[in-house]
């Protein structure tokens, strides 16, 4: 044996979730109390993955667990909702179950559209580029492209556009909040009140379905409290890059409409590990799909 392996006797904490669970996992492990008490095993879905076809959590593993942290069924396209419910039914009574949201907040990106160009099998992302950002298409841009306008003309038109003139952004905000409130009736961890109080002044979301660090910390602290541990130190936030990427740029008219103070039209967004672009720079890359 090349290394001295000792049996880790800490009870198991199982974390199940979408890509945002990466941030939850990291933050839980920043708690000394959590780390001393539990070892963690995380099961995470990513884009285009289906939860039950990728996860195989045995009864033996469930029996080893003391804590099971999960999204309630029906919150995302699990691919096999009944299979997921069956997994949850298999969790033994002795396990502390903590359910947490997979929050979605449409208001800051009201023109989102599915981006079909991603489905082109002949397309390959360039070195260091990520397709993830282009999962967030834009209806207006796509419509202008269909009309055959040049990149420069599309950008000019889009920067001049006042989105609240063509989309009911306040209606989208209200519906986002109402939906989240309804969904959080089934979760132990809550986020929507925090989002409502802070979305204008803090980066509560980095894309419409990815929460920012402040929201991740808010959720993690609730989990820690439910496990009987102290919250994370306030200083932690300042030491972190945004843990979840991509960051989706926000149109200047939306910034103005909601009076967002944590961004300006010139803010740079990390759209993948190599690119840090302003909204207008991002538009060029998005239109040209590079």
């Amino acid at each position: 044996m090349l290394r001295n392996e000792t049996q880790d006797t800490r009870p198991l904490c199982i974390l199940v979730g979408t890509c945002i669970s990466f941030g939850i996992q990291y933050l839980l492990l920043q708690s000394d109390e959590f780390k001393k008490t539990y070892r963690m095993k995380a099961y995470r879905t990513h884009r285009n993955q289906k939860i039950m076809s990728d996860f195989n959590i045995s009864d033996e593993e469930l029996n080893e667990a003391s804590v099971f942290i999960y999204h309630p069924p029906g919150w995302a396209d699990w691919g096999n909702d009944e299979g997921y419910r069956e997994l949850l039914r298999r969790i033994p009574d002795h396990v502390q179950k903590i359910s947490y949201p997979y929050p979605v907040f449409h208001a800051l990106w009201p023109l989102h559209a599915h981006e079909k160009r991603l489905e082109d099998p002949s397309r390959e992302a360039g070195f260091g580029q990520s397709d993830a950002i282009y999962a967030y298409g834009d209806s207006f841009v796509l419509s202008q492209m269909r009309q055959g306008l040049s990149t420069e003309e599309i950008i000019r038109r889009y920067l001049d556009l006042n989105i609240p003139d063509i989309v009911d952004v306040d209606g989208i905000l209200k519906r986002s909040i109402d939906t989240q409130i309804a969904k959080e009736e089934s979760t132990d961890v809550k986020i929507i009140d925090f989002v409502v109080d802070n979305f204008k002044t803090k980066r509560t979301f980095v894309t419409m379905n990815h929460v920012g660090n402040v929201s991740l910390i808010h959720m993690t602290n609730q989990m820690l409290q439910m496990m009987g541990f102290a919250p994370l130190p306030d200083s932690l936030h300042d030491s972190l890059f945004e843990m979840i990427d991509p960051q989706m740029p926000i149109h200047s008219s939306v910034i103005k409409h909601f009076g967002l103070t944590f961004v300006t039209p010139d803010t740079r967004y990390r759209i993948d590990p190599r690119r840090n672009l302003t909204f207008s720079e991002y538009l060029t890359h998005y239109i040209e799909f590079r």
């Binding site: 449409h106 559209a113 599915h114 009911d168 209606g171 519906r175 986002s176 109402d178 939906t179 969904k183």
Partner: peptide
């Protein structure tokens, strides 16, 4: 353009067009 994330905008427009309310 239609996916689960752009669904909200579609639902709002449907509510307005048909004068109905669709729950969250």
């Amino acid at each position: 353009g239609w996916d689960s994330l752009s669904h909200v905008r579609l639902l709002l427009a449907i509510e307005k067009k048909f004068s109905i309310t669709i729950g969250p």
